[in-house]
Design a protein around this nucleic acid. Structure first.
Lengths: 370, 370
DNA sequence: GCCCATTGCTGAATCGTTTTACTAGTGATA
DNA sequence: TATCACTAGTAAAACGATTCAGCAATGGGC
């Protein structure tokens, strides 16, 4: 037995040219047609209508046999389409962003798009724009900004989730803050709360100002006063102590304590989001207060864990996943050429979800107030 | 005065050729050099050493003036580098995945890499591999799989976070499950718990089997029995009721109730992760039980909210962010050609964090048991 | 005066597609 | 019988970089 019966060792599957991957040319050679024809057929270009279906079948068969996969880079370079978008979030690990992204992703993948992500970590506006440039360099066809405030209109179609700045060419997906504020403060007022504390959002956050305005208006409407001593603004800065990205829970905890330390009585807190609400609740509990018996807390967003917290969190539900999906849908529409779709705002409805973290204002406290 | 003094209306900034973007050729023309030279200098190719620094300065100046930005697609096509990797997670909105991704992102962006994400939603193994192919088509240079079980070795460098299958060319970043199980069960045993319930992980999850094996061994070591009546396996399937992606909290709630309904007494639950632990706690509370007085609960992961839950969650800390970072670092090393780095496992240490959700086993229950 | 190394660059091929313009043949129509 | 409209393709030029082989000039060593 010589070498003759030793079968040459070869990997299974179609053999590839030395270079590596199977290219369009290999397919073309296999069916004895030009690359142009093969390309047209594979893309179902209008001109492919002239190619008899028999030939088309031959091409498809060859593609399958060779397991041909078009080179994305070459294709995109030439056709100027990348089918990818960029997503910018404050911090990917925050439940808010994560849920919005889940909605974005759902729609994008369904449509054959992919996406790049970057967290700007509530750095400064210039980092945000730097990231935008980076994504543009990567040839994304559009951008979705989540809860991030744009300074200048980007050179690309863009949609901002929870954005409030009307910029040419960008659409903002927002909830109706007036209703959210009116519902929430109405709920608290009905429970007898008069001294209400507030967490105001981070300066960089797109929702902050609009929400705050809505709260001020709703408060006035209801005859409630928004006291400076009872409001704190979340900083949104990475906590230096841990050298880790901003931890919203910790911030809520810290500022919840701040509120307590100020010594000014309050019977309720309307937090900026669920995460800071949960942090604050922890601070209150640790200080020996009961929630909701001593102090009621309302969150915002209705993140998944809100309903499972103890107490179950009363909160303003934002349909985060849906907002992400809507944003993706609008963006793809715009990329697809719907110029008409450039409306500056798309509004979705919030819903006050009353759970266990709110209760009637305590008598004792109410008395002491006078 | 004719047309001559009407200045042509032009956008400000560097004028661009009709085509649109500034290309390498424009820069080359501006400095009266060949594109080859400009390219070499910009990339600091070895051959660029021969170009006098004066010329180099001229080139850089032109680049700035024209605001030249290299075309990513063209560059990648030619150089066969894309500086991007793919990240596959079960579901981007789950805290576990979100935190790991945060770590991954941190390292990648620092290094000039970008990443694509896709959630396979614990579908089936074939969808996972389909996504892998999709990412490969997008020319990613490597893959990071998070808590996802690989069937075949992918044709790309890959790192699996929480992976346990040794495959050629893939590195798994895992925690020491034996220690985690020993510590946790030791803690519970020391508190007098004998009848311990368990949540076993989803079938598709990479950690499930190894963790379970470690639990079984540790239990035996401690003389504890793992009773089938007291163990339930999380399904990981999207809940049909809500038609939304799998909600881990809800699952924890459901299976927490299941446990109760079985009517078999237990004084502690070792959940598969923090999310299911929180869901289960909610179920116990709703059933009128107190945590930890009536039943102790231990989670796994130490997600951010764990420390802020009520009660504060006792849990096994996995350094998720760091694991993500490690995964990214290893992957980039491998992409950079470190063949040596292909060790099958990298282990990080877990840490049992004892908080408020565990307490001594209740006397009454312990008595009844006999 | 010759050879060689170094300096400073360039031309042209190449990556793998898409796309435009064109051709050659074939019936049908005017 | 010229013209026209299809049919069934092809050749070659993009797209915008990188990269390799090479070349002219200069200076130094022998």
């Amino acid at each position: 037995m010589g070498d003759s019966d030793v079968k040459p060792v070869r990997k299974r599957g179609p053999r590839r040219s030395e270079g590596g991957a199977v290219t369009l040319r290999h397919v073309a050679e296999r069916v004895a047609l030009s690359p142009a024809t093969v390309s047209m057929v594979l893309n179902q270009a209008p001109a492919a209508a002239a190619i008899p279906s028999e030939t088309q079948e031959r091409i498809f068969a060859a593609v399958r046999e060779l397991n041909y996969r078009p080179n994305y880079l070459a294709r995109s370079l030439r056709s100027r389409r990348t089918y990818s978008v960029g997503v910018l979030v404050p911090e990917i690990s925050e439940p808010y962003a994560a849920e919005v992204m889940s909605g974005i992703e759902g729609h994008l993948l369904e449509t054959g798009y992919h996406y790049l992500v970057a967290s700007h970590r509530r750095s400064n506006a210039s980092l945000l724009h730097e990231y935008i440039d980076l994504m543009r360099d990567r040839a994304v066809e559009g951008l979705i900004l989540v809860a991030s405030e744009l300074r200048q209109p980007p050179a690309l179609p863009a949609v901002v989730v929870s954005g409030h700045v009307p910029l040419p060419g960008v659409t903002n997906v927002v909830i109706d803050h007036d209703r959210a504020a009116a519902d929430t403060l109405g709920h608290l007022a009905a429970l007898g709360h008069r001294r209400i504390a507030f967490f105001k959002g981070q300066p960089g956050s797109a929702d902050t100002d609009d929400r705050w305005r809505a709260i001020a208006e709703a408060a006035q409407e209801l005859g409630l006063v928004v006291r400076p001593e009872l409001t704190v603004q979340l900083s949104g800065e990475p906590s230096l102590a841990t050298f880790s990205p901003a931890d919203g829970y910790e911030e809520g905890y810290t500022f919840g304590r701040t509120l307590l330390e100020r010594g000014v009585e309050f019977t309720a807190l309307f937090a900026f989001d669920d995460v800071s609400a949960i942090g604050a609740i922890r601070a209150f509990l640790d200080a020996g207060l009961r929630v909701p018996e001593d102090v009621s807390v309302v969150g915002f967003d209705d993140i998944q864990s809100a309903a499972y917290h103890n107490p179950r969190l009363t909160t303003v539900r934002q349909p985060l996943r849906r907002m992400g999906e809507i944003a993706a849908r609008i963006l793809l529409g715009r990329i697809g050429g719907e110029q008409a779709g450039a409306q500056p705002f798309v509004t979705v409805a919030p819903e006050l979800v009353v759970r266990g973290s709110t209760a009637p204002a305590p008598r004792r406290r109410a008395k002491r107030e006078r």
